[in-house]
Structure formats: C-alpha cells, structure tokens
Design a protein around this nucleic acid. Structure first.
Lengths: 344, 344
DNA sequence: ATCTGATCTGACAACGTTGTCAACATTCAG
DNA sequence: CTGAATGTTGACAACGTTGTCAGATCAGAT
C-alpha cells in the first residue's frame, strides 16, 4: 500500500486529553514542560501522546502565544548560482537550527520586484526575522514591516533609505588592493571585468579599481573596462574580445567569482593563461588546483553568515541598540595567476 | 532611530473591517479574492488594507482552512558541504517558489538521530511535505507521519522499511561503466576510494566497482580499496598512502566528488597527475579547467531536483497512485584524466 | 474541627482567520 | 403587486493551542 488510502486526521491535544482522562490545559502543560503537573498525571499524558502519535502543533501554538513568534526566519539570497551565497546560507541555516529556528530561503535572481514579493510572502508567514541580500535599491517599504516587529539584517549589500544592521565586505578597498598587486608586478594595461552595474557591490569594486589606477597615475582606458556581465559565459566572451584588441591587456581583474571562471575559460582556450595575469574578487572553487592557481581576494562566507545570524538572533532576543554595520575583511590569497609579469 | 522603539502590533482583519466599516468576513473575502463583494465595498476594503499596512496572516489562515495545509515543505539535505546537495536544493526551492510554497531546509550531517529530530521539528510546523536525503537506515517511523497527511519523497538514497517515492541515481551501473572505461584504457591495478560504507550509495558504488573487475576477471585487491573517507582531506591522505605502495595503482576511481578533490590534491602534490588515471563519481566544480581535466560520471542535480519537486507536488495535489522510483541517469564526461594509459 | 497556604487541575476565552448559514436587498417574471 | 431567484452581507462557531483565573485537594498549624 503506497500512499495509505485512509489518512486519518492528526490527533489534537483534545484527543490526548480524552485518552488520558484529563483536560486540555493539563496536556498543554505537559507538552510545554511546564511545572505543576503531578508525576502520575504527567506519565499518563505522556503515554497517551505516544500512543496516539500526537505532534505538537506549532502553528496553532504560535497563534495563541503572546507576540506570535513563529521561530522561523526568512532568507533572501541574491543569486542561487553563486557558491558564495550558498555558503552564507549554509552557515546561517546551521546556526539557526541550533536554536530551533527554521530558515526559509528563496532567491531573488537580482530581481527587485521579486524581492518585494518574497518579503511579502515571508511577512504573511510571520517570520520573526529576515536576512537579505537585496536586489532593489529602495528599502523604505521595510519600515512598516519592522515597525510590526520583524527584525531585518542586510548581508553583502547595504540597505538604502532604510536603517538596518548590515554585514558587508570591503569591496572597494579590497579591489584596490588586488589591482595594486597587479601594478606591483609591473602591469600597466589592466582590464576590469565586472558584474551588472546596478549591483551596488559591483559598482564599488569598479571604484576600487579606478582608485588604484589613479593612485598609480595611470589613465583609465575605457576600452579595458567591461561591465554588466551577467554570467560566466558573458565574461568569457568579453575576455576573448579584450584579447583581440590591438593593444590587449597584460593583466585582468575579475570583479566576481563567476566572472573569474569565464576569464579562466577564455585564457585557457586561447592558451594565454600563463601570459596574462589574473586576480579575481571572491574565491573560486578549486582555484588552488588550476594551472596557474588563481590569485583571489577571498571573502569569508562563514564569517559573514555567522555575523549575520548572530546579529539577527540578538535582535530577536530583544537587543534594541543602534544598528551596526559590520565589515568582514577580505583576504588576498596569492597563488600564481596574479604574479605573472607582463611579457617583454 | 534604528530599531523603532515603539513597535505597534500588526493590524488584523478586524482592524481593517473597522476602518472600512464592514464585517470580518467581507474583508476575508476580499483578501482571498473571492467573488461576491460589490465593487464599491471591495475598493473601500482594499484602501483600508493599504492604509493600515495589513498583511494577511497565513498562519491563522492555515489553521482554520480545511486540511490545515501550510503551503510549506521541509527539505533534509544529507551534507551541506557537498555542492551536489546545494544544487538539488536550489532547483527544488525554485520550483516551490513558483507555486508559492516555502521551503525550509536543514542539513543532517549524516547523523541519523538528527534526521529524526528534524523530521519532528518539521512535523510540528505542519509542513505539507518532505523531501529527504536520509541519513538513517530505518524509516518506519515515517509511517505515522504519512498517515497523518505528510507527503514524503526520498532523494539520492532509497527509503528502508518504508514505501515512498524516490528519486535515485544509478550508482552501481554508473560506477561499473566508469571502471570499465579505465579497464579499456589498459589499467589492471585500479584503486577505489569511497565515502563511508554506512551510506547506501557509497556501498552501491563499491559494488559497481567490484562488478567491473569481476567481469574483467581481475581479482579485487583489498589493498587498493580505501573506504570510509569522511572528506577531501582523508581522501588526500589515503591517496598518498596508495601511491607509496610497492605496487601502486595505475588508475584511481573516486567514489564521490569530495573524494575526487582530495585525490586531485594528492596527485598534484606528488606530480603524478599526468601518470595516474582518475575517474570520479559526481562532477567536480571547474573539473573541465584542471590539468588534466577530470573525467567524471556526472549526476544531473537539476533533473534530480526537478523530478523530486514534481513528484512531491503531484502528491500534494492528491495523486494517490502507487509510489514510484525514478532513476536519473549519470553521464560520463571524458575530459582527460580518465584516458591516461598506464606507463610501460 | 477549622483555617492557611501550597499544590494541582480545569473551564473558559482568546489568538486571527475562514466555513456555514441565515438575513437582507435587488431584480425580474408572471 | 407577489414570489422566486439572485446577489451581497454579516453573525457565529470553529481551527488547535495557551493565558487567566478560579476551584479543588491536601498537609500542617491552630
């Protein structure tokens, strides 16, 4: 018999009470581990629970309980195809699970409208808090949500027109550092490949790139800048295009992990991977095993996730102190690709 | 003002009714898009909703609604550190989100006790369904859950002592195929590195390995078999050990992606990566960009996730047909590492 | 025997919503 | 002008649980 033809309804606290020969309230007390129930009765209730296969109904319980806390939080991830997001999600899920809090996750695909829809969906489910990597550029609509008790923490990208805790990464200075690294190895023609400019962090990384060039008195050649790359494939194509320039770059800064992967593919396919230097923002899976291994500015998704979860939970616990912004530092991991010197 | 000091309670349907000068039921009708409310009143209600920032309370709604469906499903993932699991999760989340169903995910870390705890936690939240990559070896405890209306789909590993839909991979024959590939390239000393034997799929893959050797009339040399490798690092160490044998293997079959990564590290560090052949089960991120690129039996996480979600949703929609097991085929991707021939 | 206080127990309303059903208003046929 | 049919509307109970509070029981003190 597969899907049992006769599903019977879940027993309720009332059924348990009837079987144990006591009242609703007493069963409730036992279920919630409250004191003030005699041992004898408590045993009787517990055995009735076992016999019926009763499961406490958290939905109903939350409805009645003061504050209406649901012990669940929502998570909005910017882009599922990015391993970084997945890693942050994992950490948060793990920490939440330790506290008996459920995490519902959804991904935005960089779509601002989806962001609002999903926030609404989570609000309807009455999540206690929200961890979001936003796609939109105006978060004032969250003011209402927060006033009604929802705690909100931003991750990776800052809130706009809205004051909230945020866990961010030092995109601009991190990038500057990476580009300086290339400059120090003798490069003067450095290309920048970046994600959509509509993404705040992508913009910051480009600014960090410009900062580094300016500090080195190198004019920014617009021909060497390719932005709005949506994925690896676009990055690959853009790289191929760069390489066919009359004066191709001798080094490339890739502003995001998926972009880095596209660049690596392009360099490989043109057999230039040992000639052209490459530094990428975000670590790349197996980056240490490639040839050359990839030099990157690595984010620390575990630290990011941990900070986000810690911050959210302390808000849930009633912390009312002013909002804070946490900057999680990036680490430069030099592995080879960034240390290639220009030919000649 | 950060966290607004005065949070006001969420408005209820009752507040909306009062403001619109109508009854609870009418507001409920408008909120649910039911027919039979005059345009004029409907407009009034909607404007009251906007004015108050009212959000429908799905928790309360589900409690009352027949069947008590929560439009949420739980997902138990076997091991968060595995990119395959993450990919399956993504696909499922995406499909669920299209249907307005929330996905709560938790990971088991291969811990059977955790499995039961998490199933209970999900049951208390009254999820409509469960998608699980199980860690335990006895799922009879789920009989009760299903009788009470929870639909359950197994993924990656089959249910035991319990009849349920399952979406699996052809581990045994896939492995046989991979090992035969090595045999065809002239290898006779082939090592097998595998995950914990307590994991069903790991056992099947080993059996597939044995099948291939037997068919080729090659005795299975226990010295060349290393199992119960918990992660990349264990796999790396085991490989180093294998290489130091008097008669080291000329080829390696890695029974899982994390194992494959460990093997690659070991081969690299001993500079044997161009001498010793390698075929891995599961695709490896960037596997095409390594040197040599890695030959693998790739699973299709998107197809797996899609099948699991489709199956679960059709059960949620009332499909009562006998349970089915779906086998998602693996694809062999030959990239180089598996085509290396033995020296001499 | 009565009282006090502590301990245990249960009746009842409430959480925010929706199903049921009856009441009312309007329209149209006869 | 009546009656039936149709379309709107709202009162009320119910979903499964917990907070409140009052009642019952009992040991020990008077």
């Amino acid at each position: 018999m597969p899907e049992a033809p006769h599903t019977r309804p879940r027993p309720t606290i009332r059924d348990v009470a009837a079987l144990a020969g006591t009242s609703l309230k007493t069963v409730s007390r036992v279920v919630n581990g409250e004191t003030g129930v005699s041992d004898e009765l408590s045993v009787r209730v517990r055995s009735a629970i076992d016999r019926l296969g009763y499961r406490h109904n958290l939905t109903a319980s939350n409805l009645r309980r003061s504050g209406g806390k649901t012990r669940s939080v929502g998570m909005l991830v910017s882009n599922v195809t990015n391993p970084l997001d997945a890693a942050v999600h994992r950490t948060i899920e793990e920490m939440a699970s330790q506290r008996g809090i459920a995490v519902m996750a959804s991904s935005l695909e960089e779509n601002p409208e989806r962001e609002r829809q999903l926030v609404e969906a989570f609000a309807e489910r009455r999540v206690d808090g929200l961890i979001m990597m936003p796609a939109s550029h105006d978060h004032s609509y969250l003011i209402e949500e927060r006033r009604m008790g929802m705690s909100i923490v931003f991750v990776d990208r800052p809130p706009a027109f809205f004051d909230a805790d945020a866990v961010l990464v030092d995109n601009r200075r991190g990038t500057t550092r990476g580009v300086r690294h290339l400059l120090m190895h003798g490069h003067r023609r450095i290309a920048f490949l970046g994600d959509r400019r509509s993404i705040v962090t992508a913009g910051e990384r480009f600014r960090g790139f410009a900062d580094a060039l300016e500090a080195a008195d190198i004019p920014l050649d617009p021909e060497l800048v390719r932005q709005d790359l949506l994925d690896s494939e676009h990055a690959r194509a853009a790289t191929i295009d760069l390489l066919s320039l009359e004066q191709p770059p001798t080094a490339i800064f890739a502003g995001q992990n998926l972009v880095t992967i596209g660049v690596v593919r392009a360099l490989r396919s043109t057999a230039k991977h040992h000639e052209i230097a490459l530094v990428g923002f975000d670590d790349v899976p197996m980056g240490d095993l490639l040839d050359p291994a990839i030099t990157v500015l690595a984010q620390d998704p575990t630290a990011i996730g941990r900070q986000a979860a810690t911050t959210l939970f302390s808000r849930l616990d009633g912390d009312r102190s002013p909002t804070q912004t946490y900057i999680i530092p990036t680490t430069m991991i030099t592995r080879g690709s960034g240390e290639i010197r220009p030919a000649g």
